[in-house]
Computed example of a mutant assay.
Amino acid sequence: MLYVHVNTASSAEKPLQAVHPASELLRALASPVRLGIVRELSGGDKRVHELVAALKVSQPLVSQHLRVQRASRIVAGRRVAREMEYFLVDDHVAHIVLDAIRHAAEN
């Protein structure tokens, strides 16, 4: 097992508000559908119907979760013809999600 040392001296000096943005990010990811969306988008841009097919959930459900992720600036979209195509705003989020999925699979 790998243990990572966190410098608690500097962490203790920072107010709890400093971790609020990270808490909001994790809240925006706290759903199997949202994690699935990030996992799918980590492989490249996808249109809504592609996400629906990959996740095997309804289009309204995917759209609802995409709204949350757009508001949290996790994903962004652009119109391509008559459809919306979504992409990750920041690849760091994909690393967080993919690492969490791998970690959970190990247990």
Score class of each variant (00 low, 15 high):
L88W: 12
L55M: 06
R27S: 09
S72C: 05
V19D: 00
K56T: 04
A81D: 15
D91W: 01
H49Q: 09
S31D: 13
R79V: 15
P60A: 12
S42M: 09
R78K: 15
R82F: 09
V38R: 02
E50C: 01
P32L: 10
R39E: 13
A100C: 08
F87Q: 10
V62Q: 05
D45T: 10
Q69Y: 01
A53R: 15
H92I: 01
A53F: 06
V6S: 03
A18T: 08
P15N: 12
Y86M: 06
V93E: 03
H65Y: 09
V57D: 08
D91F: 03
A28L: 00
H95G: 15
E24M: 06
G77S: 15
A22W: 02
V52I: 12
A30K: 03
D91R: 07
S11L: 14
S11I: 11
N107Y: 14
H5R: 06
Q64I: 02
R67L: 13
V6Y: 07
R27P: 00
A9P: 02
A12Y: 08
K56G: 14
A28C: 03
L55W: 04
V62T: 11
V33Q: 04
R102Y: 07
P32I: 10
V89R: 07
Q17W: 12
E24P: 00
R70F: 04
K14T: 05
S58K: 03
E40P: 02
K46F: 01
H20V: 11
H49V: 06
E13D: 03
L2I: 10
R70P: 00
H5E: 15
A54L: 11
R102D: 12
T8Y: 08
V4G: 03
H92C: 02
F87M: 09
A100Q: 08
Q64M: 12
Y3A: 08
A71T: 08
L66G: 09
L51H: 12
Q17S: 10
L2Y: 06
S72I: 00
E40L: 03
R102T: 13
L29V: 05
V75T: 15
Q17H: 07
I96M: 07
L35W: 03
D45L: 02
F87P: 02
R47Q: 13
A105C: 05
A54G: 04
G43H: 14
K14H: 09
M1W: 07
V6L: 14
S10C: 07
E85W: 10
M1T: 14
V97S: 11
A18S: 13
